[in-house]
Amino acid sequence: MRAIVVSATGGPEALTYTDDHPDPEVNPGDVLVDVAASGVNFIDVYHRMGRYPLSLPFVPGEEGAGTVAAVGEDVRDVAVGDTVAWSSVPGSYASRTAVPASKLLAVPEGVTAEVAAAVTLQGLTAHYLTHSTYEVKEGDDVLVHAAAGGMGLLLTQIAKLRGARVIGTVSTEEKEILARQAGADEVFRYQGFADAVRELTGSGVHVVYDGVGAATFDESIASLRPRGMMALYGQASGPVPPIDPQILARNGSLFLTRPTLGSYIATRDELAWRASDLYGWVASGQLRVHISERYPLAEAARAHEDLEARRTTGKVLLIP
């Protein structure tokens, strides 16, 4: 089968394409899927770099969608020919992958396989951030960093569905247009955004959703109102250095959390709830999925280069 393999961690050049990789084993409880599209996410970059170590060699990618080709023993609710999607399952940068049936999500009518591959991991993340990490309420002020990226566009739309005023940060005028089209009420550049946020809101925002990390952390803290929540869900600009917890006291008894998706889809019921909401919004048109780039699987290195250089907006897919 066609696949991307990482034999040694490093830069984008570590993503090596092959067209004769062995098909994955289908163990009891697994489902073999012909991959229609794989989502590209920053966690794939962290795995490639070794920041989040995996055993070498490995096939990267944790998100995708496609058609069921075969089912293993003990699989009951999935049939050959079904359209399915998944997230948080390694091995998605390939033309075929084996996925535990417990992790599979049925893709409903009205949602294409490509859209499912584009929305599942980031959409589930946006759902838990806005519904569980900090439950966004009507009238809340919400700050979303990288508001024109795949995560930012989804966070903006879902926070608006819950009645929030959304403030976004972006780096260019083009990205500002995309953020506003997604529903952002105000959009600022990164330079000095904390002062702009406090001038706009008076007391600061209720929650900051920050996937940027080191470059935005200090100003994110300064953007919060007393007892506000800092949800640091990523580190695209690098990890945040160690901090003195007293910074939370000095800025108004703040809350700081570093959530991950796995903790919020730990049970099948929770995964099903989040996916049902997510796919329902997509099918009804309440949530728009912006796919900015589709790369052939063999060009995975270029996809990573563009993602890391912030040359992309919305979601990036690999097509095997």
Rank of each mutant, 00 (worst) to 15 (best):
N41M: 11
R198N: 14
P22H: 12
A85S: 14
P28H: 08
V80P: 03
E308C: 05
K175C: 08
V45T: 15
D140E: 02
Y128Q: 08
S92F: 02
L224Q: 13
I221N: 09
P28Q: 10
A236T: 14
G168Q: 10
Q246P: 00
V40D: 13
G29I: 06
A8K: 15
H21Q: 13
H145Y: 01
T133N: 07
L261Y: 03
V107C: 06
A113R: 03
Y17E: 10
S132N: 11
S87P: 01
E73F: 00
E173C: 04
V89G: 14
A69V: 02
L178Y: 00
L54W: 02
Q191H: 04
H145T: 05
L248C: 09
R180E: 15
G168K: 04
L317K: 10
D20L: 02
D141A: 05
L254I: 03
E25H: 10
V197H: 08
V59L: 04
N251P: 04
P320M: 12
E25K: 14
A184N: 10
T267R: 07
E173D: 15
F255L: 11
Y52E: 14
A214K: 15
T133V: 15
V289M: 02
R310A: 12
L254P: 04
G163A: 07
Q246G: 04
N27G: 09
L178C: 05
M1G: 15
D218I: 01
T216H: 04
G10M: 11
G285P: 08
G202V: 03
I291A: 07
A236G: 04
R189K: 13
A36T: 12
P108S: 11
T9D: 09
L200G: 07
H145G: 08
T216R: 12
E135V: 01
V78T: 10
P241M: 08
I247A: 01
I177P: 02
V170Q: 03
Y134K: 13
H145C: 05
R165P: 03
S38R: 14
Q181H: 05
P60H: 07
G11I: 04
S7A: 11
V316E: 10
T156G: 06
G11C: 07
R258S: 12
M230V: 06
Q246W: 01
A222H: 03
D306C: 01
V35Q: 13
E199G: 08
T130R: 05
A196V: 00
K315A: 05
G50E: 11
E176G: 12
G262S: 15
T172H: 06
A3R: 11
V187K: 10
D20Q: 15
S102P: 02
A184R: 04
D306H: 07
V89P: 09
L287D: 08
I221C: 05
P22W: 08
Q157V: 05
H47S: 10
T9L: 08
L104Y: 05
R162D: 12
F217M: 10
E114H: 04
A214C: 01
V68E: 08
A196I: 00
E73A: 12
L256N: 10
L129W: 02
A300D: 06
G262W: 01
L318G: 03
V71R: 06
I221D: 08
R250Q: 10
